[in-house]
Design a binder for these strands. Sequence first.
DNA 1: TTTTATTTACCGAACGTTCGGTTATTTTAA
DNA 2: TTAAAATAACCGAACGTTCGGTAAATAAAA
Lengths: 184, 184
Amino acid sequence: MAKVSDQEILIGLMSVFRSKGYDGASLNELAEATGLKKASLYHRFPGGKKEMTDAVLDFMENWVNEKIFKVMSNAEVAPQIRLKDALYNIGEVYGNGTEVCLYRSLSMDTGMSLFGAKIERGINQWLEAFTVLGKEMGLDKEKAFKVAQQNFVEVQGSLVLSKAMDNTAPFAEALKNIENRYQT
Amino acid sequence: MAKVSDQEILIGLMSVFRSKGYDGASLNELAEATGLKKASLYHRFPGGKKEMTDAVLDFMENWVNEKIFKVMSNAEVAPQIRLKDALYNIGEVYGNGTEVCLYRSLSMDTGMSLFGAKIERGINQWLEAFTVLGKEMGLDKEKAFKVAQQNFVEVQGSLVLSKAMDNTAPFAEALKNIENRYQT
DNA sequence: TTTTATTTACCGAACGTTCGGTTATTTTAA
DNA sequence: TTAAAATAACCGAACGTTCGGTAAATAAAA
């Protein structure tokens, strides 16, 4: 029996990578955040820090798939409601503007050269979810993709601003803008 | 006589801090980027890495003041032209979408606790420049500030997207959006 | 000659990683 | 069903390397 579950470990690791980035995340810190000792972390992740980050990125990709893509594609729910649900989830994962995006934290040089492909995949899934919704709401393919990109841009940009200004208002407004963007 | 000028040093330091962040920027790398040896850097910056970063942030703040604020406030030039000039400068400093924002790179936990105040000051000056222009073009104070914020959000967000997707189009579009935003 | 600038050589501390070994748990054999 | 063997999980201590930073020595300017 594991002392700490895989999911608990991933959540701990993610929190450190998000706030410190790849270079800034030390093994001591990562171990402390998971509740395991350094050497035990290496038992779970023989590939070391790199493997831990890969696992966190997979975890995040899965989250995007479950909490954004599937929600947005669920044909049993009215589009307006799907959007609201997905935006709620987005608000939650970013602590309503107080938390940073994992993809952004890992987008420095070191992270990009190690995980660039995975980051790109995750963002594309994010964009695809909004594109699907846009098309369902009557936009043509290109327009739907453009709107999806704009949504991503505003979420990321507002997170930068909210963080730097220590004020969650820009992020809240970005979410509101996105919702308005799909008003009929 | 200095082997390397202050400005050359600052440019070298900034390039490393931008691409690597604070934690990821090692003194060996910083030294190499300036053309000086590590110990010589310490002669110029007795306060070490922290002082180097402070100097780079001051350098950046000065850049924002010269290349954005003053340009935007120059009453001798038509507002449309001022905007165009400032946007051109913004495009240049970000390599038209290929380069990262210093404030973003230093916005991880370590950087925020050390330089949060300075980062906030720099961003506020950025916002103030656009607010001035907006007011001159007939917007009321609050609206002008809101538009300035939106501009910042789109620049930052599009930089994240352009970097991750290795595609400068989102950044170019963000600049275009900003210009359109002040169309009469 | 004195001051300033630069460099070589070096330091303790922290880094990511590995090792040797202990304790649980699971699997196999009797 | 129990005992032995194998495996999985964990941890303290240490590895070699790189970190940020310093002292002493050399080179250049004033």
